[in-house]
Amino acid sequence: MDSLDSLPDDVLFHHILPPLPTVSLVRCRHFCKSWPSIVRDPHFLALRQSFYPTSGHLLFVCPASAVATSELQVFSAPISPGQGDPPLATHIATIPNLNASMVDVHCVNGLLCLHPKNSSNSKAFAHIFNPTTRQIITLPDDSSVRDKFRASTHFGYDPIRDEFKVLRLLKYNDSHEFKIFTIGDATNSWKLVNNATATHIRPTNWFLEDKRGVCVNGAIHWKYSSYILAFDLRSEQFRQIDIPDGYKYKEHCRPHLKFPDLVELSGCLTLVGYDDRGLNLTILEDYETREWTQKRIILPDGANERIHFPLCSVPKTGEILLMPYFLGRLVRVIYHDKDKTSSRRAVVMKMLEPLWPDQKSGYINIFFYQENFRLLD
């Protein structure tokens, strides 16, 4: 299997590797020593894009079935399907030995972080999964967690240093502390974050409510009370961003369902409010000057019956993709053109079997992702 390495780099770079399907390309890492440097090269990725033009994919993470909740299934579908019948979902992976109803998932820059919901004691594990390379790693245990009462886990990416980090918030009795783990760090251990940077954070239940952090501009963000709390991944410090006057979340008529109040759209932090006819978006257009703008989305007639929330902006068109809270065998979505203030409906994929929702909340984890060839081993 030394034949790949014996080929000239130019032949490998321009003719052999770019047209390969992703699964075949990933397999080449076992036979080609130069594979890691090649797949990270921007010119190679541009060549590959010419063979497989894509604006990204939708990723679905859900229990394998109504009864087999000890494993997770991962599926993908194109974010903008072509004409004709919708494509069948592509099965990416089955992740065993995880109680699906107790696992939360974060997706940042093409990697997934799987961890327990509101975990306690020694159950505070964390796995990192790359859907592109199909690799999964388990982060080392943090022995100090065994003495804690609660642990809440969050995931982020620092584009300046090209680092993925897992942040863990630990609460016990009337005190709290913060731990961080950097993927690929030589120490391979959890590090204590300087608690002095978070003296204004009260150890309440705000981070124990399955609140998913939103990573934008190298920081993880959470909506908290009258402001947004941000954890800068480079400086490893907390800061506040004031919420503009007039913003209201407004619970939906089904308050037991948890709708995202904070999302990322086109690289911008966006507050989301809901009502019976549509959504109100409060967008942080300029992160440095704290300049906010308002957008209103009126849902098409009948769409509010299925309850939609904004997932992402479609890279090629700039449309906002609105996902239904519950999914059937056919995954029906809404594309909203914010410039024309118009919407269109589409079926992006179909399943041979229906997706099984999380039995605890009824919610399927849905993300936008693009290929990331980062090696985890």
Rank of each mutant, 00 (worst) to 15 (best):
D104W: 01
F368W: 03
G84H: 14
P203S: 13
M102E: 10
S34M: 12
I16Q: 02
Y157C: 05
T153N: 05
H115Q: 09
T94L: 09
T187I: 07
Q240Y: 06
T69M: 10
S122I: 10
T22S: 07
K123T: 06
I137M: 05
V214P: 03
L88I: 09
S65N: 14
G110R: 01
L114E: 07
L299W: 01
E371A: 08
N121M: 14
Q359R: 15
K316W: 10
E71L: 11
P159S: 11
I79E: 01
I136W: 03
P53R: 09
V314M: 12
N130A: 04
K295F: 05
Q83H: 12
R27P: 00
A64E: 12
D210V: 12
F368E: 03
Y172V: 13
P86K: 09
A64C: 14
H106Q: 12
L45T: 09
D242I: 10
V193K: 09
L114T: 07
S120H: 14
R150L: 10
V347K: 09
D142I: 02
D275L: 00
K165Q: 14
T133I: 02
V105N: 04
K295T: 01
P131Q: 04
D286E: 15
L20N: 00
P53L: 08
I283R: 01
G328R: 09
V333F: 04
L281R: 00
C253V: 07
Y249H: 15
E264Q: 10
I79Y: 07
H200L: 05
P140W: 05
C253S: 11
L17D: 02
T341N: 06
H43I: 08
C113S: 12
R290H: 13
R332G: 01
D141C: 05
A100G: 12
S37T: 13
T270Q: 03
K258P: 04
T22H: 04
S50N: 14
R239A: 06
N130Q: 07
P42L: 12
N372L: 12
M351L: 14
F207S: 04
P357W: 05
V103P: 02
A77D: 03
W292I: 04
L281E: 02
D85I: 11
V23N: 09
S225H: 12
R134K: 15
I298V: 14
L170T: 11
E71Q: 14
L45M: 14
L111W: 03
S65T: 15
R161D: 15
K211E: 13
D158W: 09
S235F: 14
T204Y: 05
P324N: 09
V23H: 12
P18T: 06
P260G: 01
K250C: 10
V67C: 07
L321N: 08
D301F: 10
I298A: 05
K250V: 08
W292P: 03
P8A: 09
G318T: 06
V331M: 11
N99V: 03
P36Y: 10
D174F: 13
L311N: 02
L98V: 05
R329S: 15
L321E: 00
H176F: 13
P159N: 10
F51H: 15
L167N: 04
E319C: 04
V39H: 00
W206S: 05
L169S: 13
